[in-house]
Design a protein around this nucleic acid. Structure first.
Lengths: 140, 140
DNA sequence: CTTGACTCTGTACTATAGTACGGAGTTTAT
DNA sequence: ATAAACTCCGTACTATAGTACAGAGTCAAG
């Protein structure tokens, strides 16, 4: 096993080195202490943290929001319950929206298969009702 | 009923005027023809399209990806089935990830209530396995 | 028939999330 | 022991998604 220096860590996490440095600069992940000899070494937990950040981004969370989500990771009930509740509400709305889109797409694909051809795909109206979830991105 | 000029449209869609112009510039929405007298008027369908774009953004789709989603709206089976299938796969992965996060948060909140205090909240590991969904954003 | 609110066009600026790169130091493979 | 590959640090650049604003035109209410 070769030591997990930043380059190895980046490959494992599927991001590039500069992204790791960037996350360190903005305080999203910790920079490991510089050892007396040799290069900084990155623990497994940091790799997982980075992967989580990437996934959260793909789910529409900004880095600020993701920072709040990560506070839940090791926060304690007193401070985090309210946050957990509000994030849960956001997540449930996202799930609902995505489920509606999935239903429309599934229907569309079925129509295509049964060859009742030239079926439209009313995706827009799948998300018609009032939101809650349209971009705050400040993380609060 | 006052005519739906750009300012009214922006208020209805919940974005600002410049955003509408920006979407027009990049071809995401059509610019209504300029009438011989008076200002451009925006149809209801454009408002819905803008709202859809905002929701899609909150669900982690880039404007490029959203452009592809909107092609499904009035595209026909021959051209769109493959696209629909790949978008459905992406959406289902997002739903799975969000559901896992929701489960962890729900559990966390329950623990807090039953006062078994100082429960951690293993959000990171809720998204542990291999993805599929980590940011392409080119829309393909 | 003028004043205040709005539109139109174009250009410039901003925030977020990275990427790239130069130059110096460190490590490792030969 | 030296070259190739990597780390470190700082600064600068980029893409995406808007925002802001100046200056000219248009509209509608008093």
């Amino acid at each position: 096993m070769k030591p997990r220096t930043i380059g190895v860590a980046a490959r494992e996490a599927g991001v590039n080195i500069e992204t790791i440095r960037y996350y360190q600069r903005i305080g999203l992940i910790e920079e490991p202490p510089k050892p007396d000899a040799g290069f900084r070494l990155y623990p497994e937990s940091t790799i997982e943290r980075i992967r989580f950040i990437q996934r959260a981004k793909a789910l529409g969370f900004s880095l600020n929001e993701t920072t709040r989500l990560l506070e839940l990771e090791d926060g304690r009930c007193e401070q985090t319950r309210e946050l957990a509740e509000s994030k849960l509400a956001v997540i449930n709305t996202k799930i609902e929206d995505l489920s509606n889109m999935a239903a429309v797409l599934t229907e569309h694909i079925k129509c295509c298969q049964s060859n009742t051809d030239n079926q439209a795909c009313p995706l827009i109206s799948s998300l018609s009702s009032e939101s809650l979830v349209v971009d705050d991105s400040s993380g609060n």
